[in-house]
Amino acid sequence: MKKTSTRLADGRELLYYDLRDDAVRTTTDPRPLDAVTTGSEIRHDPLLGDAVAIASHRQGRTYLPPADACPLCPSRPGRPTEIPADDYDVAVFENRFPSLAGDSGRCEVVCFTPDHHASFADLDEEHAALALAAWADRTAELATHPAVRQVYCFENRGEEIGVTLGHPHGQIYAYPFVTPRTERMLASAAAHRARHPHQNLFDDVVTAERADGRRTVLDTAHWTAFVPYAAHWPYEVHLYPRRRVPDLPALDDAARAELPGLYLELLRRFDRLFGPGHPPTPYISAWHQAPFHHPHRTEFALHLELFTVRRTPGKLKFLAGSESGMSVFINDVPPEAAAQRLREAATE
């Protein structure tokens, strides 16, 4: 992997991640862009303790442009984009409309492929490994940012999820606080440790799922994928390395080598869930990583949460009154049935 750092016309950082070590990236951004100005602000909810990002400048962000106006495709003569080169393997750049910026953190866009009509599942293993390596590299780099306490790498796919750009891409949010979801997991882990001083909650969950087996989707030498016992979403898979690590940069060589093929298999099974003739499955792919400088950082377990809002062909799982108002999820698909369907999707 070769990494090249450059700047866009408005000063934002752009990084190319290339498979070839001899790749040369010298194309400059010809656009007459003004410097990015943001109004990002972090406010705290006194009742829930949550942090909320107020980012009014995002109202004007690009929304579902046609393919010939996509800002994530390579640049063409007369049509410059966010990526000045006429081709790329993986490109990462600072978001032009960030939810977090400056002392409030940082937001980046990760373009997996120059092919506007592809998806992550269409990549070969070498290219998928490069995209995953870029996420790990950005996590390690953003850990040095003085304002950042946690890095979240994720991909939203599908208009049903709320995607505003159709080009296959992911994002990285570098938060200046520990997210509420992670705080809850850390609190649960601490309570488990108090009850069982020599045990780890994440390890025990994975061990229990592997022993039960009914919800296991994939079990390899270095990774385990399963539908959780109390799954929130109709089809939801959690993927854990067999050796607990806090984040992507901490994976050992063996786990890192096995991950691309395993991740591609899960994505392809999601696309086969609802049978031929149905549109691609919308999903969120979320990497949960330990916060930096936390006293219990090493007790946290890196894991992927992959889920879809589609519960059956033509029907979506909406967050209605119970979920949105009280954060109590109601799942119409039994986790054991979801796991069985995902196992069957391997042979279709």
Results as ranks from 00 to 15, higher is better:
Pro246Arg: 09
Ile284Lys: 10
Tyr283Pro: 00
Leu302Cys: 08
Gly78Leu: 01
Glu13Lys: 12
Ala133Asn: 13
Leu248Val: 06
Ala143Val: 12
Ile83Leu: 14
Thr4Val: 15
Pro146Trp: 00
Thr26Phe: 11
Val110Tyr: 04
Pro114Tyr: 02
Val151His: 02
Val52Asn: 05
Phe112Val: 11
Ala254Ile: 12
Thr182Gly: 02
Gln199Pro: 07
Ile330Leu: 09
Ala337Phe: 11
Asp68Val: 09
Ala69Arg: 15
Leu201Phe: 14
Ile161Tyr: 01
Pro246Val: 02
Glu125Val: 09
Glu323Met: 14
Asp50Cys: 12
Gly213Arg: 05
Thr224Trp: 11
Arg195Phe: 10
Arg243Lys: 15
Ala131Met: 05
Arg76Trp: 00
Glu183Val: 14
Ala35Glu: 14
Val109Ile: 14
His167Tyr: 00
Arg311Gly: 13
Asp10Leu: 04
Ile54Leu: 09
Pro260Ala: 02
His303Trp: 03
Glu299Gly: 07
Ala67Asn: 06
Pro291Phe: 05
Arg242Gly: 11
Gly105Arg: 00
Glu236Gly: 08
Ala231Ser: 13
Asp203Tyr: 06
Ala211Trp: 06
Arg244Lys: 07
Glu183Met: 08
Ala69Gly: 04
Pro77Phe: 05
Leu19Tyr: 13
Arg242Thr: 15
Asn331Phe: 07
Thr281Asn: 12
Pro291Asp: 04
Leu33Ser: 13
Leu47Asn: 09
Tyr263His: 14
Ala9Tyr: 11
Pro32Thr: 07
Pro180Val: 07
Tyr173Ser: 00
Val24His: 11
Ala136Pro: 00
Leu342Trp: 04
Glu159Asn: 13
Leu259Met: 02
Glu265Met: 03
Asp271Ser: 06
Thr164Glu: 05
Ala290Glu: 07
Thr179His: 02
Pro291Gln: 00
Arg310Asp: 01
Glu265Trp: 04
Ile284Phe: 06
Arg157Glu: 01
Ala208Tyr: 12
Ala35Gly: 14
Tyr152Pro: 10
Gly261Val: 02
Leu218Pro: 00
His57Gln: 09
Gly213Trp: 03
Pro46Leu: 12
Ala194Gly: 15
His192Met: 14
Val217Ala: 04
His288Thr: 06
Phe202Arg: 11
Leu273Gln: 00
Asp212Met: 04
Phe226Trp: 03
His232Lys: 13
Pro276Thr: 10
Tyr175Glu: 04
Ala133Phe: 11
Phe300Gln: 03
Thr38Asn: 12
Gly102Asn: 06
Pro197Glu: 10
Ala118Trp: 05
Gly261Trp: 05
Pro168Phe: 00
Leu267Ile: 04
Glu108Trp: 08
Leu266Gln: 01
His127Ser: 08
Asp115His: 15
Ala231Ile: 02
His288Met: 02
Arg214Gly: 06
Phe202Asn: 13
Tyr173Phe: 07
Pro335Tyr: 10
Ile83Trp: 05
Pro65Ser: 03
Ser56Cys: 14
Pro249Ser: 15
Pro80Arg: 01
Arg96Glu: 12
Ala255Gln: 05
Thr207Leu: 10
Ala290Thr: 01
Ser324Cys: 13
Asp137Gly: 13
Pro246Cys: 08
Pro77Gly: 09
Leu64Thr: 06
Ala174Lys: 00
Trp223His: 06
Leu201Asn: 08
Thr139Lys: 10
Phe274Gly: 00
Arg214Trp: 04
